[in-house]
Design a protein around this nucleic acid. Sequence first.
DNA 1: CGAGGAATTGAGTAGGTTCAAGGCCGGTGG
DNA 2: CCACCGGCCTTGAACCTACTCAATTCCTCG
Lengths: 231, 231
Amino acid sequence: VGLLEALSANEQRFAARVDIVTEGEPPRSAFVLTHGLACRYRILRNGRRQILTFVLPGDTSDLNGFLIRAMDHSIGTLTPTRIATSQWEFVIDIPAKYPRLGAALWWSALQEDAIQRERIVALGRRSARARVAYILCELVWRQKAIGLSEDHAIRLPLTQIDLGDAVGLTPVAVNRALQEFRRNELITLERGRLVLLLIDRLMEIAQLSQDYLHLNGAPLPIRRYFERSGL
Amino acid sequence: VGLLEALSANEQRFAARVDIVTEGEPPRSAFVLTHGLACRYRILRNGRRQILTFVLPGDTSDLNGFLIRAMDHSIGTLTPTRIATSQWEFVIDIPAKYPRLGAALWWSALQEDAIQRERIVALGRRSARARVAYILCELVWRQKAIGLSEDHAIRLPLTQIDLGDAVGLTPVAVNRALQEFRRNELITLERGRLVLLLIDRLMEIAQLSQDYLHLNGAPLPIRRYFERSGL
DNA sequence: CGAGGAATTGAGTAGGTTCAAGGCCGGTGG
DNA sequence: CCACCGGCCTTGAACCTACTCAATTCCTCG
């Protein structure tokens, strides 16, 4: 639609385990992640890390960065990643010029909010097992939503350390939870491939409601808007 | 500005400890909280509660509710509260018709995001003491930002249960942290009045950075937009 | 084939939960 | 005006989950 060319023109590539944006610096531009996997995270003084959210293809970032002086967290890649950057002047006009895309972005922001709320609940009130089950469900769910997975199998290029940093656990606790899930044949996880064998059971453990991401009634995922023109 | 009359016209009052919006139901309308204190929360199956965020005067809610089928959390009052409701059709036009107010809302959304991130970090990686120190700082900070407090003293109409539900602790753990702060003369807290005696020390315990809410360089708080016309 | 990070497992510890009891305070009704 | 009542605060003690420390094995990559 013209928009998409503008975006894909400015595509940047990043290696795995590299920072896209660094805490303390002013954000450089808005972007959409088009390929790969990244995460927003923060490093604490004692060296510990907390992963705030995962950034999947189709997710946008810093759309409103022009309002901010300095990032309060970093964004780093987990796998080789591509992003399409775009000027803020451009972003600001989106709702007016491309109402459908604007609505999709609006929606997307809503969904991210919902994810963050769920994370708060998980970290605040759930056991280690529940947290691990939860994060696995989230990842699978989101990948399915953007068409990166049929059935309930996904690529999981995360270490147990990463998973722990996402849900506030040590790798040891994550490992024990995973082992338990394997023993009970709830999941399979080998060489970066995760399969949820008994999702219902896992969601019960995670105490997730069926529709926690408001996925029902969602407009087309943003990614589709790009795919349509072959990006 | 015309806008404000429209809003204040629809003011609703709520008693303390009452739900404004209930999980599972579709949101009714957008609103701004004008007086009082509320919180977004969720009740889990085991009966536990997690408070997601506190809603202070000037905070908005459900601006985009028209996109959602059912709320994934409730909003309840903590003190007697007043809200100014408004139709979504109206909200949608704000950025176009009232750009300055639109910018303020945009900003406000950013800030809420920052608060949520901070919460995630606190719940994921910090000790009980740090979490309690953190939530006290947040509350004081935010009240100061909207002009509800000079110095570092605020009204704190929350029980220790509420505080615990906000930071994922039991009331017992909250109590012990508070006692310790009192012993060390970091705070004073009696009959709903909280005073932070040594903020620097508390922020250090909470591991908060000086500028965690991006309060530097913020445009006028939203509340000011209302106050200007005497709401 | 060697090296380094990740996964796995065990043992001991600690921070927070759970359970429980007593005191305080504010609100209500007589 | 005062007594009663219920919820909150406070504190102690036992328990438990997840952390810490550590050693071994496994994978993957160069």
